[in-house]
């Protein structure tokens, strides 16, 4: 194409420059929601146990906490998509594009879970014992029935060694470091 075939760029639309107020406001809200989520996850269970004497609050109300946290995350997501990506002022088709993504992802979740969640009732230990191939019958690793493996001797629950460097495990750790460095 020769140069004179090209049109000079002269944008007809007014560029939607985000205002300082909106940019900083969204940032503030995002950080606030994030801190709130951390607060719900980390502090609230302890506070409940300490002040309201709720026994084992973290485990009892985990579903509630999880829902609140995912709700907070979703709000953050809405803010990012809506204002940072500026979908609120975008063309309808761009909005539709994004929304259709969430809808079809919803289909994916919904129909996959319609199988995996209803399957649980069938995969009881008794069912496995009666119906599974011989090599699986002693398996404890069936959905929902994972086994707790205690910490090895010389290790804390979180995997840190209790004192110094145990000889038996030194090699392993050296290896893992090497593997990472390369």
């Amino acid at each position: 194409m020769s140069e004179h075939d090209h049109h000079l760029v002269e944008a007809q639309h007014e560029p939607h420059a985000i205002s300082f107020k909106a940019a900083f406001g969204v940032t503030f809200l995002l950080i606030a929601f994030t801190l709130f989520n951390v607060f719900v996850s980390v502090c609230v269970p302890h506070l409940l146990e300490k002040f309201l004497k709720v026994h084992n609050a973290a485990a009892e109300y985990s579903t509630v906490f999880n829902c609140v946290i995912m709700g907070g995350a979703t709000l953050c997501g809405v803010l990012v998509v809506g204002l940072f990506m500026h979908i609120v002022a975008d063309t309808p088709v761009n909005r539709l594009t994004f929304i259709s993504g969430t809808i079809f992802l919803g289909f994916f979740f919904l129909f996959t879970l319609s199988d995996t969640l209803t399957r649980r009732t069938q995969a009881t230990p008794e069912f496995i014992k009666d119906h599974a191939p011989a090599s699986f019958r002693n398996s404890s690793e069936i959905p929902g029935k994972a086994v707790l493996i205690p910490a090895k001797e010389g290790y804390q629950k979180n995997g840190e060694e209790i004192e110094g460097h145990g000889h038996g495990h030194d090699h392993d750790h050296g290896h893992s470091h090497e593997g990472h460095a390369h």
């Binding site: 129909f111 319609s114 199988d115 209803t118 399957r119 069938q122």
Partner: peptide, 10 residues
């Protein structure tokens, strides 16, 4: 081995 519930919907 998909469950029959899911199968019926599909």
């Amino acid at each position: 081995g998909q469950t029959t519930y899911a199968g019926a919907v599909f």
